[in-house]
């Protein structure tokens, strides 16, 4: 798997396939990037499971917070990792153990050894990307604020509605 560049089809496949996303490093501070991502993906209809040992048992954005991936009653489809590249290695191993199908390391986070272990265990891996940015880019939203989506198409690109309209 080439982790320097991902095809749009690969990223779209991941985002269309998963329904539950565990967010490791979930912050209750509404100004932090992890909070933005949880709010956005939750509004898009994903089930969000915040993971943060300091907030365990409390709620973030109405979602119950768990201390660790090993505490989850059911395997999450995807684990989104807001930790640095070194710390991400352990989280990836926990994601494998928890039965996740996708592990996604945030923009700026990359650990190739951990990615190889996850892929050997049958998980799909995305690194150094943000699922919120990719969702907005692939489904026709990011250009609304002048960002280059790099998408060329002569097909209609309907913007996916928020969960309240589905």
């Amino acid at each position: 798997m080439d982790h320097d560049s991902y095809s749009d089809a690969y990223l779209k496949g991941v985002l269309e396939d998963v329904r539950t996303i565990a967010v490791v490093g979930a912050s209750d501070n509404p100004l932090r990037a992890s909070h933005f991502v949880m709010k956005y993906l939750g509004d898009k209809g994903y089930t969000i499971i915040p993971i943060n040992p300091g907030q365990a048992g409390k709620e973030i954005l109405g979602h119950r917070v768990y201390a660790a991936l090993s505490d989850l009653p059911e395997p999450p489809d995807m684990v989104d990792v807001f930790r640095n590249s070194d710390a991400a290695a352990g989280v990836v191993d926990e994601a494998i153990a928890a039965g996740a199908r996708v592990v996604w390391l945030q923009l700026g986070v990359r650990n190739d050894d951990a990615a190889r272990r996850a892929e050997a265990a049958g998980l799909r891996v995305v690194m150094n990307r943000c699922p919120k940015i990719e969702y907005q880019r692939l489904f026709g939203e990011i250009g609304r604020i002048g960002v280059n989506s790099n998408i060329i198409t002569a097909k209609k690109r309907p913007v996916k509605p928020t969960k309240k309209l589905i």
Binding site: S5, A9, G140, N148, S149, I152, T153, A154, K156, P158
Partner: peptide
């Protein structure tokens, strides 16, 4: 088409940023 890694300048000058209007097809 969106899977092609890079399009030529001429193609992008005509298409980049634009797509048929999602509501009307304009």
């Amino acid at each position: 088409m969106s899977e092609k890694k890079s399009f030529g300048f001429e193609t992008r000058a005509i298409h980049a940023g634009a797509a048929p209007d999602p509501t009307t097809g304009a």
